[in-house]
Amino acid sequence: MNSIVVSSLVPVVVLIAAGYLAGKRRWIGGGAVKDLSHLIFLLLAPALLFRAMSTVHVEQLSLKPVAAYFIASGLLFSGTLALRGFNRTAAVIALANTYSNTVMIGIALIGLAYGEEGMVVLLTLISLHSLVLLTSATVVLELAVAREQAGASGTEKRPSMARTVIRALRNAIIHPVPLPIIAGLLFAQTGLAMPEAIDKPIQLLGQAFGPIALVMVGITLALTPIGRHWRGALTQALVKNLLHPLLVAIIGWLLGVRGIPLTVMVVAAALPIGANVFLFSQRYRTAEDLVTASVVVSTVLALATLTLVMMCVQWLP
């Protein structure tokens, strides 16, 4: 079990380390990080998300285990906002507490540990993971931005809540993360097949997302002083790697989810923080240093916490 976890996590750690080396040696300067972020967020991520959703048929999805995952994530997300207040920083931290690295690490790990049956369950989650969590986070972030802008305007008359919500929903949908997910899901329902001449470039762009995003985490890590953030990063990592799967296990048990579906959902929740959270912190310019440190600490810590969780889930009936 431990060897499976290590073999899945080591490539992620190596990519972050490669980015760290590139940043330390100044092969890539600080001015290029913003451009690299735009490349990832506006081109590579949409290609990955659209293609992942373009073959998903709603009627084939088993949603009960996934519901347990999202209910637990929603409780943790809401609890974070309640503790930290309604603002951009709290929203990004809440996303870090709930967004797992299901693709880069999860697919290899679940496939090796739980075989085809486990993969079916995980892919059901992956098909909705970004759609639900990233779209929800985008709505909250856009609402927080609108609220901050209204407060900074200095005018007594603020826009109505309905108008703010409508604007936030519009910005959330016309957005480089939710829009390709929705477009891919709609395309899948048509039953059409993507021409290979179009599908192959989209596939290649999507495959570039994971490595480049993780390298960028390492570059930013090297270029920003994060030593003072290690305690906060450790707290974030423990919440994501241990509290999140514990909540999923409890909610799943209460909903009657058992066996491999429950096991896969718990292990998926125990995966470290996904790189998309870092991209959100970059895009909304908040908690960038803390999120950078948290992604790295969560990934390194997962070598131990994933092993612990995967051992514990064996005791579930």
Rank of each mutant, 00 (worst) to 15 (best):
T299K: 08
V300Q: 06
Q236Y: 12
V297T: 07
V296H: 13
R285H: 13
T235W: 13
I260S: 14
T305S: 12
G274F: 04
D289I: 00
L254E: 07
A269S: 12
T305D: 04
A270C: 10
V296A: 15
M265A: 11
T235V: 15
L242T: 07
A302F: 05
A287E: 14
L262C: 01
R285E: 12
T235A: 15
V266E: 06
H244S: 15
T305N: 00
G259V: 04
A302I: 05
A270T: 11
Y284S: 03
A275K: 07
V300L: 04
A293E: 02
S281M: 05
F278R: 01
M265D: 08
R283Q: 06
V297E: 14
A304C: 15
M310F: 13
N276G: 05
A304T: 00
T263S: 15
L262N: 02
A287Y: 07
L254R: 09
V295I: 09
A270Y: 00
T286E: 01
T235R: 14
M265T: 00
A293V: 02
L290P: 06
V277C: 07
L262P: 05
L247N: 02
I273S: 01
T292V: 11
A268V: 09
Y284H: 00
M310C: 01
T235L: 14
V291C: 09
Y284P: 12
P272S: 01
T305M: 04
A275E: 05
V295W: 08
L246E: 14
L238F: 03
R283G: 06
V309S: 04
S298I: 09
A287Q: 15
I250P: 10
V295Q: 04
Q282H: 11
L255T: 00
Y284M: 05
L303S: 12
M310H: 12
V300D: 03
T292Q: 11
V297Y: 12
W253P: 09
L306A: 05
A293P: 07
Q236I: 07
L243N: 08
A270I: 02
V239N: 02
S298H: 05
T307Y: 12
S281W: 03
V296Q: 08
V267F: 03
S281T: 06
V266K: 02
S294G: 10
V296C: 12
A275V: 14
V264P: 13
I250G: 05
G274V: 10
A270P: 07
F278S: 04
S298E: 15
W253H: 14
V291H: 11
I251N: 05
I260P: 10
G274M: 05
L246P: 06
A269T: 03
L246F: 15
L271D: 00
I251T: 05
L290C: 01
A293G: 08
M310G: 14
T292Y: 14
N276D: 09
K240N: 02
V300C: 00
T307P: 03
V297K: 14
L303V: 15
A237S: 10
Q282F: 10
P245G: 06
R283I: 09
L238H: 02
L271Y: 06
L246N: 07
R285Q: 15
P261Q: 01
R285T: 13
G252F: 00
V264Q: 13
V309L: 04
S281Q: 03
A269F: 07
A302T: 00
V248R: 00
T292K: 02
V239F: 07
A287L: 08
A268C: 11
T235G: 12
G259A: 08
R285A: 11
V267E: 07
F278V: 01
A237P: 10
T299S: 14
L279I: 15
V277D: 05
S298D: 10
W253D: 11
